[in-house]
Amino acid sequence: MHVEEKFTDATWPAAPETATLEGKNKYLGFWLFLGGETVLFASLFATYLALKDKVPDSGMLLAKDLYEIPLTFAMTMILLTSSLTSVYAMYHMKNNSFQKMQAWLLITVLLGFSFLALEVYEFKHYVHLGHTFTSSAYGSAFYTLVGFHGAHVTFGLMWFLSLMLRNAKRGLSLYNAPKFFVASLYWHFIDVVWVFIFTVVYLMGMVG
């Protein structure tokens, strides 16, 4: 089986992402990267937890004054749903239906953009209230952690979009199937990080 081979639905491998050696290596290497990302985010979480509510004067807003349930809830639901839509995309990839995969990826990208729009709104709102990157150690730690996640979302969106555009006229092959698969793994990882952000930063922040 070589990368350029043309497949029918019946000959398309059951696990196209690891059918070639390149795909296998990509898959393994990507998980090594995710292990490193885990450490990166853990240190940002650790910094945030150590610096939470450390503000220079008592008049400044703390976590429980800033965070609001409705916005965090909406962002969480959007990102969780986008995780499922990318699972649907990979389901269609395994069935060799390229157009359906592209359609589900487009939905994933749109959900990702709406998540990002809400995050931009949230940050703008906080800055307006006087909670900025430079206002306190708490502010720096908060924007670094949540902003890093937002940057990952942005990168994931660019990644999906470039794969979708680059391969729009090519259709599926063993050359690009691992690429789509790895991008969807990245997207799930972003969701994993968000689960901890909404729990540790927002919900625990609101509880006090």
């Binding site: 292990g35 885990t38 853990a42």
Partner: peptide, 11 residues
């Protein structure tokens, strides 16, 4: 192994 090593260091 990769992801649990990452989680251990992170924790």
């Amino acid at each position: 192994l990769f992801i649990y090593s990452g989680l251990t260091v992170g924790l």
